[in-house]
Each structure stands twice: as C-alpha cells, then as structure tokens.
C-alpha cells in the first residue's frame, strides 16, 4: 500500500531524512519509534505534502501512485490521512463544517454525490459518541480552546468519519490521560481492517499495549535502522536506543 524508497529530505538545506525505506501493506499496523529529532514527524509531513520540505532523492508510492506528484488534498482524497502531533486551532471554522466539507470532497473524488444530511448527521453523532465527545464539540471551532487530549480525540474523530486507507498518527498518545488513551486506542482499532493500514509514531510502549503493531521500526538520524515485531518495542522500552545505534554502526 505504501512504499517509501531511499527517501532523502532536506529542510532549509539541512538533511533530515537520509535514505529511508519503509513498506506498509494493507491490513498492517506499523509503529515507528525513535529519539527526538530523528525525523519521524518529517516523514509523515512529507507523505502528507507539507510545504517546506525538499525531497532530494527517493520515491513514495501509495497504491502504486507517485505521492510526490499529488496535491495535498489529492493525497487525502486518495485515502492518505495524517493525524497531527500538534493539531492546530482554526478559529471560526466549525468542526462540523470541516467534517462535512472533507467528507463530501472525498465522495466527490470517488464520483459519489454529496452525503444526504440525515445520513451525515447520524454518522457524526455516532462517531463522536464512539470517541466519547459531547456533540457540542461539533459546533465548536476546530480545536479552539480544546484541551490537549480533546484535540487528539478530535483527530481520531476525523479519521473515523473519513475512513482513510492509510492513517498516519503522529504521537496520538501524547498528552492523553489513561482513560483517553483507551478511547483513542479503541477508535484506532476500529479502523483496522484487511483493506486499511495504520502507521503509528510513538515514544511509548503503553500505546502499543492497546494497539498491537505488526511491525515496529526504529528511526534514528533519518534512517530506519532496525525493524522487528512487537517484541522490539518492549526491548526498546527496557533498554533505550543506545544499543540499536551501536548495533547499526557495527
């Protein structure tokens, strides 16, 4: 589904990603771990299409399509969705406007008509209930005045409504209390299916107790230096990154 090959990215002439390879197949959940500043958010931002990153080498394919040739919104409509590490506030734009405009844009791209109002209402109410968000959040401006945990739940709510093929979740667990973590994890797990894939960026094993990954990768200094199954995350939790670094240098 997603194939990243030999990806080199620079920001303001500073090399951040230095030959990164990653393959995610449909039905899989991958976790990316790694020290601060390794390039995890950069990877997801480049896949989502944020400006300011220069791809100097390498390719990103999503279902065989060249992602780097696609506009930001085309990527989303194709089913590639990024949940932000730091979701921004958008004053004046109601959550419900965003959800409806986004969903209809996606439907239009698939050649479907606009979603009928009753169906949309049923959908958003159901999904906000699933995220244990009061319907009043739908009327509020996107993330404005939301607590850190509410912002993260709101990101997942968008995922549940938009049902991406590949959800990239950047530190969706940061700032969550124990209950919120369960709610978010349950939301993410409900997205799991044979046709979909999930890419989780996280620092903590805790999230992976709730969302069991098929593959765990360690991203250090712009490269994936080690990959393994869920046991690798446990090992990292116990031993830190030092040993992985030493191993990869050797």
């Amino acid at each position: 589904m997603l194939e990243v090959k030999d990806l080199h990215v620079t920001v303001e002439d500073k090399a951040i990603l230095k030959g990164l390879d990653l393959t995610v197949n449909a039905g899989e959940v991958h976790a990316i771990m790694g020290p601060n500043g390794a390039g995890k958010s950069t990877l997801s931002a480049v896949i989502a299409g944020k400006e300011g990153y220069e791809v100097t080498q390498g390719t990103i394919l999503f279902e065989g399509q060249d992602v780097l040739e696609m506009e930001i919104e085309e990527r989303a409509r194709a089913g590639l969705l990024l949940g932000f590490q730091y979701p921004i506030e958008i004053p004046g734009v109601k959550n419900i406007y965003l959800l409806k405009a986004a969903l209809n844009a996606q439907r239009e791209a698939r050649g479907e008509g606009e979603i009928p109002a009753p169906e949309f209402m049923k959908l958003v109410r159901e999904k906000s209930a699933q995220m244990q968000m009061d319907p009043s959040f739908l009327q509020r401006a996107v993330n404005e005045g939301f607590s850190g945990g509410e912002k993260k739940r709101n990101e997942i709510l968008q995922m549940l409504v938009l049902e991406p093929k590949l959800a990239m979740l950047d530190e969706i667990d940061s700032g969550l209390d124990i209950d919120a973590m369960k709610i978010v994890a349950q939301g993410v797990n409900s997205l799991r299916s044979a046709g979909r894939a999930i890419l989780l960026v996280t620092h903590y094993q805790r999230l992976l107790n709730h969302i069991e990954p098929d593959r765990v990768h360690v991203l250090v200094d712009g490269r994936i230096v080690k990959s393994g199954d869920k046991e690798l995350a446990l090992e990292l939790e116990a031993r830190g990154y030092e040993w992985v670094l030493e191993e990869s240098v050797a």
Binding site: A48, G49, I72, E73, L98, Q106, L162
Partner: peptide, 8 residues
C-alpha cells in the same frame, strides 16, 4: 494546510 490534509 490543515484543511487541505483533510481533502478540502
């Protein structure tokens, strides 16, 4: 950018 990443 944030809105465009949602397909808008």
């Amino acid at each position: 950018y944030a809105l465009r990443t949602r397909g808008i």
